[in-house]
């Protein structure tokens, strides 16, 4: 459910901590492996999820990002909380455990993603994907998308403001005509802007790939960045192997 992405930078919390300074490719891999470890943990091992929460909070402390920053933004989880609370009604005791499973893993997943987004700028995340050998075409599209998202979103906001100031006040689905025609106009303007952007890029020497501004990470940096993954693996190993 993705209602309400306000700006492009709302999740980033600028800082100069060791976590912020880690190369983005290391952070992406660390976040992904950590969440895979969390998802693979058996649901009955309640203590393990507490351990993962302590781990995430430790990373927040090291990154010097206040807990309130994450608390507000974790609200994106609310629909899943509702689903998880409905589960016991649908499935009894097994349902309650299943609801807990979805709630715990979903929440830890969101907190991990939020940690990544808080300590890494959107641009760095794209550079990270580039360093992880993502095809240049994908990272270039993503770069241009992020760069123009604010422009297109602002255009959409201006069109909405124009509609409202002319008395548009839709309340029912059958009143969406003007909104939909606005979306049509927005597509035409986006497409035409794309054509202009392409010509501007070609005239400035575009050859089909973005310059790679990232730096390779040393093995020591990888080891430091992957510490949370090692902790997760240790917790997971204990949860699976120790009866």
């Amino acid at each position: 459910m993705s209602a309400g992405h306000a700006g492009t930078n709302v999740l980033h919390h600028p800082g100069d901590s060791p976590v912020h300074r880690l190369p983005p490719q290391v952070k992406i891999v660390a976040a992904l492996l950590t969440v895979i470890g969390v998802v693979a943990t058996p649901r009955e091992e309640f203590w393990a999820f507490g351990g993962y929460l302590v781990l995430v909070v430790t990373v927040w402390r090291m990154a010097r990002v206040p807990v309130s920053h994450f608390a507000k933004r974790a609200l994106i989880e609310v629909p899943f909380v509702v689903i998880a609370l409905l589960m016991p009604l649908l499935g009894g005791a097994a349902g309650a455990l299943a609801g807990w499973n979805i709630l715990a893993k979903g929440t830890l997943g969101v907190l991990t993603s939020l940690t990544l987004a808080a300590t890494t700028t959107p641009r760095e995340l794209i550079v990270g994907l580039q360093r992880l050998r993502t095809p240049a075409m994908l990272t270039t599209i993503a770069t241009l998308m992020l760069r123009y998202l604010e422009v297109i979103a602002a255009e959409a906001r201006r069109m909405r403001l124009a509609r409202i100031s002319r008395g548009h006040d839709p309340r029912f689905l059958w009143q969406v005509g003007a909104t939909a025609r606005g979306i049509g106009a927005l597509f035409i303007r986006s497409y035409e802007r794309g054509e202009r952007v392409h010509l501007a890029m070609v005239s400035r020497g575009w050859r089909g790939a973005m310059p790679d501004r990232g730096v390779a990470a040393s093995p020591a940096t990888w080891l430091a960045g992957l510490t949370p993954v090692l902790v997760t693996a240790a917790v997971l190993g204990t949860a699976v192997l120790v009866p």
């Binding site: 993705s2 209602a3 309400g4 992405h5 075409m137 270039t140 599209i141 993503a142 770069t143 241009l144 998308m145 760069r147 123009y148 998202l149 422009v151 297109i152 979103a153 255009e155 959409a156 909405r160 839709p170 309340r171 029912f172 689905l173 009143q175 969406v176 909104t179 979306i183 927005l186 597509f187 986006s190 497409y191 802007r193 794309g194 054509e195 952007v197 392409h198 890029m201 070609v202 089909g208």
Partner: peptide, 27 residues
Amino acid sequence: DDRTAPMAGLVAAFVFATQMLNFPILP
């Protein structure tokens, strides 16, 4: 062809922006 990146980038920004637009279903 070579227009792929800028055109797809702008279409993706458009898709993203339309996902921000809420429309009413019922009050």
